[in-house]
């Protein structure tokens, strides 16, 4: 995978970027996050537009994961604000972020290890299921209808990700690449508007990476899901993303299309080092 003219679906990157100038879905304004004296993020602003694939890159410890944690409410930045769908969200809680349509995968796979693939993805449907405790206890009538209805949706996702064969296996024993795929499925089950992917391709071989890239592009184009993605593989980032934001030591050093970012001297210095 090289970072030149064509992305995986074969469209020229420049053309793709032009088609996505939608409204701003999420805007991060002057965010600063400190843990005691450690400054994780300092005065970072960027926005994510509806329908785009937005990459967040940077060397280790640049504050990328902290950024995602701020967006979905695990951390609350001391300064700055996050606006989602035009609404300011001070101190949002993770389950509220989920209810608002923000889904997420984790850098280190955070699946429910004791449960089967099916149950893991079904858990993603939790927010969409409303039958109360007493119907649940009977597991007949409305509760069962609801369960079947969501099972159908989950089967669609299983088909989409091509993981039919591991449907009933406990996820703890699956190979790493498949676990990542199940985690993506669990996030997709929430039918999110904004999907945050924290290193979806870490530790994968080339073939698995290509599969994952295809899924991400399909999710973006078929479901119209906006994607924010952290990734270290520059080839992947340059191919997949519409716009890239680069962080270093908690500060934003560049923001723009893959081509712009790649040519930026600060980015080159951050990745390759500077001669002193």
């Amino acid at each position: 995978m090289n970072a030149t003219a064509m992305n995986l679906t074969g469209e020229p990157i420049a053309a793709k970027a032009e088609t996505k100038k939608g409204e701003v879905l999420l805007a991060v304004e002057n965010i600063s996050l400190r843990f005691g004296g450690v400054k994780a993020i300092t005065d970072v602003s960027f926005d994510i537009r509806k329908g785009e694939v937005r990459a967040i890159i940077g060397p280790n410890g640049a504050g990328k994961t902290s950024m995602l944690n701020c967006i979905n409410g695990f951390y609350h930045p001391q300064e700055g604000q996050i606006t989602y769908k035009g609404v300011r969200r001070p101190r949002v809680k993770p389950h509220q972020a989920a209810a608002d349509g923000i889904a997420r995968t984790f850098q280190n796979v955070a699946l429910f290890k004791g449960m089967s693939t099916l149950d893991n993805i079904m858990t993603g449907r939790t927010l969409k299921m409303h039958r109360n405790f007493f119907w649940q206890a009977l597991r007949h009538g409305p509760a069962m209808t609801e369960e079947i209805e969501h099972r159908k949706k989950v089967e669609d996702i299983i088909d989409f990700l091509q993981i039919q064969h591991i449907r009933k296996l406990p996820v703890g024993k699956l190979p790493y690449g498949l676990q990542k795929r199940v985690e993506l499925g669990r996030a997709l089950a929430m039918e999110p508007e904004l999907l945050l992917l924290d290193e979806p391709m870490a530790g994968m071989n080339l073939e698995e990476k290509e599969d994952m890239c295809r899924f991400i592009l399909d999710v973006n184009s078929e479901f119209g899901t906006t994607i924010a993605l952290i990734e270290h593989d520059m080839g992947v980032v340059m191919d997949l993303s519409d716009r890239v934001v680069v962080l270093e030591y908690g500060r934003k050093i560049a923001d723009g299309t893959p081509a712009e970012v790649k040519a930026d001297q600060k980015v080159i210095d951050a990745y390759l080092g500077v001669a002193h």
Binding site: H95, A98, A110, M115, G124, T126, Q136
Partner: peptide
């Protein structure tokens, strides 16, 4: 059902469970 799954989700990975809206 749904409740059992959310309990097991809390048991196995509470951070991820919270992100599922539990």
């Amino acid at each position: 059902g749904r409740l059992g799954r959310s309990w097991m989700a809390v048991r196995d990975m509470d951070i991820a469970a919270e992100l599922m809206g539990i």
